[in-house]
């Protein structure tokens, strides 16, 4: 009798995992897919303002999640501006003034280049699995693709968004949509990811649209024009001295 109970319980327990992959497992797969030892990419950021849109191109080198170095390529005014991120510190170098300015504290919450992203948004470098506990809430279609809908709730305190919803492609394990919520449940931001391409053997979304849901406007579009994984990046790039070069 006792054994049968254990048997039934363990079957029930196991079946929860076997029907579809567990939420944590999905997240882990996404992370495996999206993150790499290092990467080098060129991107365009299209910012829609009240006066029209403008495009900023940049080249970014990043190692892991802690170090990144970005050089802006265009428009001419921004070209040569460099941004260095080490852990939670951020420096910006402008060639026209030959100055390195540290952005710290609450200034990190300002918007970057008039976009719907703050410096802080760009700097959040922790793995989702480290800070959220995930729950699978269903399967939905997003852009004609089957997705797992995950609900992520913060398990640590110092996060910008208490709850997220992520829609992950069931085949490619690429997120296609993400919604960020306030503690109160208010939808704050929506991110839409598309143009998923296979690069160096992994699926990667190359277009991301960020939209601040509380503000009027068309949001900010982020487009990867080239991306390479596991490149050799010289260590000196991630020093303040490199900013001036």
């Amino acid at each position: 009798m006792k054994n049968t109970t254990i048997l039934i319980l363990s079957i029930l327990f196991l079946s929860a995992f076997s029907v579809s992959p567990g939420a944590d497992e999905i997240l882990k797969k996404v992370e495996e897919n999206m993150s790499s030892e290092n990467r080098v990419f060129e991107s365009e950021m299209i910012i829609h303002g009240r006066r029209g849109s403008r495009t900023i191109t940049s080249k970014t080198y990043s190692v892991g999640d802690k170090q990144s170095f970005t050089e802006y390529l265009s428009p001419p005014r921004e070209a040569g501006t460099k941004m260095l991120k080490l852990e939670s510190q951020l420096w910006i170098y402008s060639p026209s003034t030959d100055r390195t300015i540290q952005i710290s504290g609450h200034l990190l919450r300002q918007s970057v280049m008039g976009s719907d992203l703050s410096y802080e948004d760009m700097m959040d470098d922790r793995k989702l699995t480290e800070i959220y506990s995930a729950r699978l809430i269903g399967e939905e279609k997003v852009d004609e693709r089957n997705t797992y809908a995950l609900e992520l709730t913060a398990k640590v305190e110092d996060v910008a968004y208490h709850r997220r919803k992520v829609w992950v492609d069931t085949e490619r394990f690429v997120p296609l949509r993400e919604e960020l919520y306030a503690k109160s449940g208010q939808l704050l931001k929506r991110t839409t990811l598309s143009d998923v391409q296979k690069i160096d053997g992994r699926w990667f979304p190359t277009v991301v649209v960020f939209k601040d849901m509380l503000k009027q406007g068309d949001g900010t579009e982020f487009r990867m024009t080239s991306i390479q994984f596991d490149q050799e990046i010289p260590e000196y790039l991630f020093t303040k001295a490199a900013l001036k070069q």
Binding site: R109, E120, V159, A160, H162, A182, K183
Partner: peptide, 16 residues
Amino acid sequence: LLLRWRDKNGTFDALE
């Protein structure tokens, strides 16, 4: 009126 603020941990919150 919709308000958005951050709590002591920097977590966004919003409320009408």
